[in-house]
């Protein structure tokens, strides 16, 4: 009797744990998507895009706009991805490239430009779509599945599935296509790639476009029933933590880092008393700081030789 009660309690605790674990995994899949976008941009142009989150937020508004115009959700998302792709490519061409060329290796102008982009997009969204929070459904419905006593939402499972598909598509692109090979070439040595005929500028635009399109997916999956222009402020920090942990040049690292950060944040918010809901960001901050101090290249990244 006593033992049965004990077992039941342990069982309860375990399924509760499992529930948080999967919740974290689902959120982690979104962070992984944004982290992948950050990694793509870092690899082609060696910079951190601080506006990545806000670009995704705008893409989410676009998706919402198309959806409220009567388009089916999936169609709206795909169209928004296409538009985001074009927008991302345009940002690279019009904003980033001229500044980067002028900066000659000084990171400050490019950082400031992406912060400017952050500010402009964050301010433009409530201007264009008004400041009221927008209702938006879960892409994968609000049902749930029971696994080992834990109830896992279909949204979580769907998000994980999306991550798997994304990784597979990216792998195909980078490993199996000529364009993917050229992008990797540019990431590794852009001058040599140019000297065999790769149009480097176009590859950079492609990288930014891809990252922006992935941001659209991440944004839409981040929404839980309603959103406004603050949608991506916190997820961006998680994604940065994920990319830092995995290594800014490592797609594998982004995925592993994203899932890890998601789970760690969820479990620490649930179980570590002083962190709780408001301080969810603390683990992410600590992670960024510790990884950059102890192992700046991350778990899967390549050690950089500092250029003097």
């Amino acid at each position: 009797m006593l033992i049965a009660a004990l077992v039941a309690q342990v069982d309860n605790k375990f399924s509760e744990f499992l529930q948080f674990f999967f919740l974290g995994l689902g959120k982690g899949a979104v962070y992984a998507t944004i982290a992948l976008a950050l990694v793509i941009i870092f690899r082609v142009s060696g910079m951190l895009n601080f506006a990545q989150g806000e670009m995704a937020m705008v893409s989410t508004y676009v998706t919402w706009g198309l959806w409220t115009k009567g388009l089916p959700l999936v169609a709206a998302l795909i169209l928004a991805m296409v538009l985001s792709f074009l927008g991302g490519a345009a940002i690279e061409r019009v904003v980033i490239r001229p500044i980067e060329r002028k900066a000659r290796g000084n990171p400050l102008p490019v950082v400031i430009a992406t912060i400017g982009l952050f500010l402009a997009l964050n301010g433009a969204a409530p201007w264009i779509w008004d400041a009221e929070a927008k209702q938006f459904p879960y892409v994968f419905g609000s049902g749930s599945v029971s696994i080992a006593g834990a109830s896992i939402s279909t949204q979580t499972l769907g998000t994980l599935a999306v991550l798997v598909v994304e990784v597979a598509l990216l792998w195909l692109l980078f490993q199996k296509t000529k364009v993917g090979l050229a992008m990797r070439g540019v990431a590794s040595n852009s001058q040599s790639s140019a000297l065999v005929g790769v149009p480097v500028g176009r590859m950079l635009m492609l990288g930014w476009g891809l990252a922006a399109a992935m941001g659209a997916v991440a944004g839409v999956l981040t929404v839980s029933l309603a959103f406004d222009n603050s949608l991506m402020a916190v997820p961006l920090i998680y994604a940065f933590a994920a990319a830092t942990l995995g290594g800014f040049d490592s797609p594998v690292g982004a995925v592993v880092g994203g899932l890890t950060v998601g789970v760690v944040a969820e479990l620490s918010a649930a179980y570590v008393g002083f962190i709780g809901e408001p301080l969810r960001l603390l683990p992410a901050f600590v992670l960024i700081l510790v990884v950059l101090l102890v192992r700046p290249q991350g778990l899967f990244g390549k050690a950089q030789v500092s250029r003097v």
């Binding site: 904003v95 001229p98 500044i99 002028k102 102008p109 490019v110 400031i112 430009a113 912060i115 400017g116 982009l117 952050f118 500010l119 402009a120 997009l121 964050n122 301010g123 433009a124 201007w127």
Partner: peptide, 13 residues
């Protein structure tokens, strides 16, 4: 914010 954001970008350019 929009004006400042764009101003930052333009200044950097």
């Amino acid at each position: 914010p929009v004006v400042f954001g764009i101003l930052l970008i333009l200044l950097m350019m």
